[in-house]
Amino acid sequence: TAQAQDVIEVHNTMSAGGSEEAAMLRFKEIVEERSDGSFEVNVYSGGQLGDEVEVLELLNLGQTQMALTGGAFMGQYAPEYDAVSVPFVFPNWGAVEHYIMETESGQAMQQVSRERGNLHYIGPQMRAFRHMTSTPAINSPDDLEGLKMRLPQIPVWVDVWEELGVQAVVIPAPDIYLAMRTGQVEAHENSLASPYTRQLWEVQDHIITTSHLSFPWHWVASAPWWDGLDEADQEMLTEAVHEARQHGYEVELEKDEFYREGLIENGMTFIDVDQAPFREKAAPAVERALADKADSVAADIEAAIAATEGQ
């Protein structure tokens, strides 16, 4: 068993109140209960002790214990196995989870992250699928031509969306509302939490359900710290993470539905597009992105999709 009152810090960059915090709090509850108080879990939401990259460095150094981190670590440590950051690849959450947890490529990603970044990988946590919001109505990829669209500073995303015809504008997230109000951008993409919390109905009319990506969170631990724990604790923590992930999944689904209703109530129009033409037009950029990956990746994507068909 652990020595008395070992502190486990868990970090996440989202502000409190979302499915991320809910999952971390569930983790805290489980661990403190099952360890009879020998572990104390401190939850840091909103990047209180550092943004994504800084927390990765803290984990690398063994200066903190755990994080519910975003996708940056795969880009940093295991870009050759990172298929889950490419838009229009996985059709549902089950396929993403299967790819990471069950395939050779997913295992390799976890292994390389440990070697290059001292990360012990535990499991992905679902984030609602991303859609786009837009001032003009978008019914097919042809309507995207020349549209000024805000995108985060992620090269693959910019490439895919430019292939679809938009004019990418890279601006920081806090400025999205202002940029739409002043007409600097006419569209952006994110999960529904973004237009809801930013009250984008004041500046946008449409939500186009492109469902192009579920960009997951990942439960990771600092390998030097993890390896120093005894096996029973490792098992208990792993189990706690899986239960917390499941709880986060449920909360995220509830929230997504809540946002959808809220957005409709506030006058936004949902356009349920056929995803196929978007996927088709984006294909060259998606292929470019996947061409750089390891040999196993293409087959493993197919296997993951096949294994979860019908979900």
């Binding site: 800084e54 460095e57 200066q63």
Partner: peptide, 12 residues
């Protein structure tokens, strides 16, 4: 005293 932590924070 974690010297790396100090450097990391300065960089931040």
């Amino acid at each position: 005293i974690p010297t790396e932590l100090f450097a990391l924070q300065m960089m931040r």
